[in-house]
């Protein structure tokens, strides 16, 4: 009885999670002529992959895709390194100004991002970082470091201090102990951080929209907007592009989701 309830509950969650995604796929494979007449049907009476072929061959989407992978991958990489170091400092040291810095990091999350775009644009123009993928990586990295630091801090707190202390007694410097003893143990935590940051950077729209001008440097969320024309929206192609855009994020997420819960568990031991 209890088991049946458990399975039904899970089933409800799975259906709720998948239904919009199912609809996205359905629209992408519906021939354009049937898009409006068969909008309510669960599956169209005919299907084709025209939208997909057009997106892959006749649009700039492959380039948008490559740019997004560079930006999201680069951001995830740098954030994980910076946040690991900072999270380590928070978990292992008591020092003056710690509360101030935690407060500062929280504060940066409270100001609407929209209002930061104009000042950031002014700051980056003289440095040649506007209309550049590097500019995006730097901006995204800065935005994701605070949350990632809190996350990494909780992972480090799950690892006993005695581990690196004994390595230090054996003659290691603290940094060597961190590198050889502690980092391998936080790999699941780092995987979790990578995953969170990659998906966040992968779907970011506003900054990309404002900081990038040239078509060949657009990331894919901005590229999706190009399907919204002045007079009509090419829904089939847009949804096909959307489905394709889901693939890397999903693969990445599926690869690390096993570590996600494990990693967070390690971190949560001490709460």
């Amino acid at each position: 009885m209890c088991t049946i309830g458990h399975r039904l509950g899970l089933l409800a969650y799975v259906l709720f999670a998948l239904f919009p995604l199912y609809w996205l796929v359905k629209i992408a494979v519906t021939p354009e002529a049937l898009l409006y007449s068969e909008g309510v049907r669960l599956w169209p009476s005919a299907m084709n992959f025209d939208s997909f072929t057009r997106v892959l061959t006749a649009s700039d989407f492959p380039a948008f895709f490559r740019n997004s992978i560079i930006v999201a991958g680069g951001t995830a990489f740098f954030v994980t390194i910076l946040a690991s170091l900072a999270g380590y400092a928070f978990s292992r040291f008591r020092f003056r100004g710690k509360a101030l810095i935690v407060g500062l990091m929280l504060l940066t999350q409270m100001f609407p991002i929209v209002m930061l775009i104009a000042p950031i644009y002014r700051l980056m123009t003289p440095l040649g970082l506007t209309d550049s993928l590097w500019g995006l990586v730097i901006t995204y990295t800065a935005f994701n470091v605070p949350f990632a630091t809190f996350l990494m801090q909780s992972f480090f707190e799950g690892i006993p201090k005695e581990l690196e202390e004994s390595a230090m007694i054996d003659g290691c410097t603290r940094f060597a102990a961190l590198r050889k003893v502690i980092f391998p143990l936080t790999l699941p935590g780092m995987a979790a951080t990578l995953g969170f940051v990659f998906t966040a950077a992968w779907s970011e729209l506003l900054f990309s929209l404002m900081l990038i001008n040239s078509e060949e440097k657009m990331t894919f969320p901005v590229g999706l907007l190009t399907f919204i024309g002045k007079f009509s929206v090419d829904w089939g192609q847009m949804m096909a592009a959307g489905v394709l855009a889901l693939v890397p994020a999903c693969i990445f997420f599926a690869l690390i989701q096993r570590y996600l819960v494990q990693g967070l568990t390690a971190g949560a031991v001490k709460g």
Binding site: L10, L21, F252, Q257
Partner: peptide, 14 residues
Amino acid sequence: QALVFLPWAVPTFL
């Protein structure tokens, strides 16, 4: 687990 966590990976705009 992989299926129910999927929505988090979908770009918000999409």
